[in-house]
Structure formats: structure tokens, C-alpha cells
Write a protein that binds this DNA or RNA. Structure first.
Length: 607
RNA sequence: GGGCCCCUAGCUCAAUGGGCAGAGCAGGAGACUUUUAAUCUCUUGGUUGUGGGUUCGAGUCCCACGGGGCCUACCA
């Protein structure tokens, strides 16, 4: 394992360089046991990784390591039914961080991602031609791509996420449920589930109503109150009922899952159905023909067992009683003789500060959108620093500046090994991965605030921004040294900062104002323009701008200002802002001059 | 009906398997001819929603209550 992450700060605790087993030692002993050693920080990732190991090999494994050859599986799953947004990204990053933590401990691990592309297409989202309603009920992998750039609906939404994940340094093994089911990979499990459908029904039934309580007397009262519930109890009563059959085929004629199962023969495994869409009836053999899938609540636990999943997160909506994880957890040992993976439920990610919606289809921003304004490590950091259960918002508005500031100041803190705590640990998790190494970050760190505000006045030339930033005291060799931050600052300024907040340089001079200058004002401008060189240098320009009011009072450029001069400066600056950017204040004047160039300044200030 | 999260300084939030309650902004004082949110230094500000409990010790764990938010209700 090539570990790019700095080890523990204390030289003594760096760990035995040899023994592989001893190496796992970081778990149970109370931290900081020996006197004044700084203790190893712990966060949710550490704990989830411990749980994953425990699932794989018990408490024993945590202390002595897993048996040779045992690979820990961290899993994720997602349905490519629409743009994979920043909320869904948690599904990918949560197991990713856990897998990385395990790698860093030297544990063999894989991040397995299942694409639920064999799920049915549910509804036609806004913006897609209504004719796509025809495809409702078909697998996502069989629905054509309305934008015609990918092979299917599913692929259309997988592709951009894949690209974003590469940028984020997330490496995973992808599995397509369509391929798996169609290839019959799960057939054995499917048959097993069908055979034991009474167990499934029993478990699902437990969560159906609250009247599972043993007291029969009160049950009638409850039933009276919940009349709506009573109705559908009837047809499903029998264990052999087909209404809740755990397997559902896609219609052989029209490809939709809108089928009523009419018969199933446990001996032959022949399944007969009638499609309510096209009206055709068919018989499929579950053992030999692979035309359908398990229902979701059975499908998920089946995959845990099939893939040997040790850790998998789930959205909070999967964690509520009666929903998939709770049901699956109970189902999987009884049906597939497997213990449910260790699990964390993650909360939702919200968005804020967006005047404009993202360009990507649905409206909710995606990882790709976020990566246009956030450096990859920062996006990772947002997900690493919060416990999964904690909901948070990603803000595309003014908070972006604060976020960068916070990140930069964390970097300063991280430079001091004595301050290694959970926050620094979160940063370490964000900054590098085992397969991608250190993720892109600027060689020369310039505050995002500065980059964006210079981008604001220069209207978009990276070279010019680079020069000004250099002049202002952030020495660097080339534009490249400022990337990937500079480009993001430019994008942010032009796409997420409302026009009203931006600096708008006047197109043409304010002739009216220039015609009504006071005597002082006229003198100031004359002095300024008279001495303004064609090629501006920051220091000179600064001295000149501040010095003009001094000259006007017969002083030298470098003389210390008097109170009068200070008052004049204030008035002078106000005039300049008005004439240049039609505002009372604005970016620092010397910077603004540099950004505009002598010619432009001259044209706006000359009566 | 069930579940989860949250309530900490005026505001936005930290405090990540109990161990001296902390930042940023705002406020106050000072410095500064350099208005990128100017910057720098110093500083005020807390009975951690309420009431109990466990503990040597609770923002943190348990129970109840109040308030806010999210999810879910027999479908995949």
C-alpha cells in the first residue's frame, strides 16, 4: 500500500515497521496510552472501517487481522434514473472513504458499485418528450436516450458521474444489474427466494401494519379505525398467493414489467403472466430463462449475500422501519444465510445559494456542477468531515468564498503535526486517495476571494488575472500554478454571482459627470492622467493614486498625508469609482487600474 | 401512526466511542496615507431548549416534555 497520508506525528508511535499483523494494532487500546503522545484521532470513517472488519472477521479480526486472502467488500448502489446529484454522491463517497481507510491499514478491500439499471423506468421527467411515457415499466437500460448521446437512458446518467468520480479519485468496480440478471448470475438465489416466498411474506408482513401486536381484543378497535388497511388483506392471505410474488418478469412482448402473474409451478419453475399493457400472455421459466428480477426489498439483501458485502451505506429513507434495509437485515439471514452488512444511514444533502439552476437536465446540481466551482479535495471534504447522519447544504452562492477560506486555514493547521485532530484527519481523507494519489490542488494557493474579485474586473482573461495576482504579492511562475482554483473562481464569478453583485466597468464615459467637475476634481484628474504611464506597474500606480491629492495641495508623492489630504483621498476615490464602475465603492483602485489598463482608464476619465 | 436529525454567544455553526464550551461574523477599544468582505492587535459576550436520571465528571449517554426540520406508511 502506497500511503500518501502522513503518519502519526510522534516519531515513537510510527508503529513497528515490520510485522504485518502487529500493524493492525491501532484499534482498541486507549489512545495516548503512554504519557504525552498525541492520540490518533477517530472519526466516523474509522468506526465504520472497524465495523466492516468486524463483519468480515469478527472482533478477532480487528485485533489480529483478517485471514489471508479475505477481501473486504464496501458496496454502494444507485439507480441511474436521472441525474446523479450531490445527495446521491454520498452513496458513492461513504463506502469510498471507508475503503480508503481500510487500504491505509493494509487491508485488502474492494469498492463494489451496483448500478440498478434493471429497475423500471418510472416516470418521464420534465423536459423529456411526453412520448417517452411509452417506456414506463421497461428497464432503465432498455429505454433509449432522449438526448441521443448514449446507448440508453441508464448510460446517459452513468457517464457524467463516472467522469466526476475520476476527478474525485474514486475508484470502484462497477456491476450492472441488467447484465447480471440477464446472464442468469443470480438464478440460484432467485429460485431460492421464490421457493421460500413464505418467509419473505412473513417478514414483509410484520412491517405492514401495527396490528401485529398479540392482543386480539384491541385489534378489532384498531381495525375499525383503519378500514383502508383491511381491504387488501384479503387477497394476500394465502401463502401461495401470487400477488406478492418476489420475482417479476419483464413482458416478453413489450418489455414492460406491467404483468399480472397468473401461475407458478414450483416443480417446473414455469411462471405464467399476462401483461396489462399489451395484453399478451407468456410463460417464462425462471431457472432457464432470465427475463426478470427480484423485487427491490429482496433484491438488495440477495446481493449482500451474493457479493459478500461487509459494509454498505443507505439513505435515511432506506433506514426507516419497514423499508428496505430493515427488511433486508431480517431477510438475509433467514433466506440466504448471511449477516447483513455493517451499515450507516446517511442524511440528505441540500443546496443553497443558487440563483441559476444548473445546466444539467434535472435542476438539482450534480457532482460535475460542483466540481466546476470547487476543487476536488474540497468537495470530498464536505462529505468526509460530517458524520453521515448529519444533513448539510452545499452552497453555490457567497458561502463558497467562506468555504475556501476555511479550507485554506485548515491547510495551515494541518501543517503543524502537533495539531493533528479529527478535522485534520478529515482533510487527509479529502486530499488524496490510494489509487489517484494527491488530487489536483493549486501549487500556489491564492485566496479564492482575491481570484474571483480580480476575475470580476478583468472580465475573464486568465493571463491578466495571473499577472495582477502576481503583482499583488502572490508570486507564481505561470497561470498553471494557480489552477485548478483560478478556473473555478472565474466560473463561479460569471455563473453564480448575480450581476448586481459584480463590478460592471462603464462602457462609455459619464460625460455628464465629467462636465460638472468641481475645481478640485478637475485638478485631480488632470494630475492623474498627466502622470499615468501607458504601462502600469502596481507600486507606481498605487503611489500615484494615493498621491494625486497630495500633488494638488503642493506636496510630494511620498509626503505623509495630512488630515486634509485624507479627506481629499476619500472624495477622489469616490469620484474614480463613480467614473470607472458606476458605484460608490469597488475593488481596490490600483488593482482595478491594472485590470482595466491605462488606455481604458484614460478614456473613462477624460472629459 | 412510526422513525431519524436538530435546539450551544446577537447571527451562522464547531466541540467525531463522556474529560477545562470554541471559531467566524456582528458589537466594543486601538493601529493604519494602501476600501480585494480593507487589514492587523486586543476585547465584550454562555445556567448548551425544559425537567429528571446515570457518572468522580454530561453539550456529549438514558428517560420525559416543548419547539423546528426531514423521511416513511404495507410500491419497486
Amino acid at each position: 500500500m502506497a500511503t500518501p497520508v502522513p503518519g502519526p506525528p510522534a516519531h515513537a508511535s510510527a508503529g513497528p515497521p515490520d510485522a504485518t499483523a502487529e500493524h493492525q494494532e491501532q484499534f482498541p487500546m486507549p489512545r495516548g496510552g503512554t504519557a504525552d503522545q498525541p492520540s490518533e484521532p477517530i472519526d466516523w470513517v474509522t468506526r465504520a472501517a472497524d465495523d466492516a472488519i468486524r463483519h468480515a472477521g469478527g472482533q478477532e479480526a480487528l485485533v489480529h487481522g483478517l485471514p489471508e486472502g479475505r477481501v473486504v467488500t464496501c458496496a454502494s448502489g444507485a439507480s441511474p434514473s436521472g441525474p446523479i446529484h450531490l445527495g446521491n454522491l454520498r452513496e458513492f463517497l461513504t463506502p469510498h472513504f471507508v475503503a480508503e481507510e481500510l487500504r491505509r491499514r493494509g487491508v485488502a478491500v474492494r469498492h463494489l458499485h451496483s448500478w440498478d439499471d434493471f429497475d423500471r423506468f418510472r416516470k418521464v421527467p420534465a423536459g423529456v418528450d411526453a412520448s417517452w411515457a411509452e417506456h414506463i415499466g421497461r428497464p432503465l437500460s432498455a429505454v433509449p436516450d432522449p438526448w441521443e448521446c448514449h446507448g440508453s437512458w441508464a448510460e446517459h446518467f452513468k457517464a457524467p458521474l463516472r467522469e466526476a468520480l475520476v476527478e474525485l479519485g474514486v475508484e470502484m468496480v462497477e456491476v450492472s444489474q441488467t447484465e447480471q440478471y440477464l446472464a442468469g448470475a443470480y438464478t440460484e438465489q432467485v429460485l431460492h427466494a421464490i421457493t421460500h416466498r413464505d418467509v419473505i411474506e412473513e417478514v414483509l408482513g410484520k412491517f405492514r401494519t401495527k396490528k401485529a401486536e398479540p392482543a386480539p381484543g384491541s385489534e378489532q378497535e384498531a381495525a375499525a379505525l383503519e378500514d383502508s388497511v383491511v381491504e387488501d388483506d384479503e387477497p394476500t392471505a394465502g401463502a401461495g398467493s401470487l400477488a406478492r410474488f418476489p420475482y417479476r418478469p419483464y413482458c416478453r412482448t413489450c418489455g414492460r414489467d406491467t404483468v399480472d402473474i397468473t401461475a407458478y409451478d414450483d416443480e417446473s419453475t414455469d411462471l405464467s403472466y399476462t401483461c396489462t399493457s399489451c395484453g399478451d400472455s407468456h410463460t417464462t421459466n425462471v431457472a432457464t430463462q432470465h427475463e426478470g428480477k427480484l423485487v427491490w426489498k429482496v433484491d438488495w439483501p440477495m446481493r449482500w449475500a451474493f457479493e459478500g458485502v461487509d459494509f454498505e451505506p443507505g439513505g435515511l429513507d432506506h433506514s426507516t422501519p419497514g423499508s428496505s434495509y430493515t427488511v433486508g437485515k431480517e431477510l438475509v439471514p433467514r433466506l440466504f444465510d448471511f449477516r447483513a452488512p455493517s451499515y450507516v444511514a446517511y442524511a440528505f444533502v441540500g443546496f443553497a445559494g443558487m440563483q441559476k439552476m444548473s445546466s444539467s437536465a434535472g435542476g438539482v446540481p450534480t457532482a460535475a456542477d460542483a466540481l466546476r466551482i470547487l476543487e476536488p479535495p474540497i468537495l470530498r471534504w464536505l462529505y468526509a468531515r460530517r458524520q453521515p447522519k448529519q444533513a448539510f447544504d452545499i452552497d453555490f452562492g457567497p458561502e463558497v468564498v467562506r468555504l475556501y477560506d476555511e479550507w485554506d486555514s485548515l491547510a495551515r493547521k494541518a501543517a503543524d503535526p502537533g495539531k493533528r485532530d479529527a478535522q485534520v484527519l478529515a482533510r487527509e481523507r479529502a486530499v488524496a486517495t490510494s489509487s489517484a494519489g494527491t488530487l489536483p490542488s493549486p501549487k500556489v494557493v491564492v485566496p479564492f476571494r482575491l481570484l474571483s474579485s480580480v476575475a470580476d474586473v478583468t472580465a475573464g482573461s486568465a493571463e491578466l488575472i495571473s499577472r495582477i495576482v502576481g503583482d499583488v504579492g502572490h508570486a507564481h511562475d505561470s497561470v498553471e500554478d494557480l489552477e485548478p482554483r483560478l478556473g473555478r473562481a472565474m466560473t463561479w464569478m460569471s455563473e453564480y454571482v448575480p450581476a448586481s453583485e459584480r463590478t460592471t466597468v462603464r462602457e462609455t464615459k459619464d460625460a455628464e459627470r465629467l462636465a460638472s467637475l468641481t475645481e478640485d476634481e478637475e485638478l485631480w484628474l488632470r494630475q492623474l492622467l498627466g502622470r499615468l504611464p501607458d504601462r502600469l506597474e502596481l507600486e507606481e500606480t498605487t503611489a500615484l493614486i494615493y498621491g494625486v491629492p497630495k500633488l494638488a495641495r503642493g506636496m510630494g508623492l511620498d509626503d505623509p498625508p495630512t488630515d486634509q489630504v485624507k479627506a481629499d483621498q476619500k472624495a477622489f476615490f469616490g469620484l474614480l469609482y463613480h467614473l470607472l464602475v458606476d458605484a460608490e465603492r469597488g475593488p481596490r483602485l490600483p488593482t482595478l487600474f491594472m485590470a482595466l489598463g491605462a488606455e481604458k482608464v484614460r478614456s473613462l476619465l477624460t472629459p
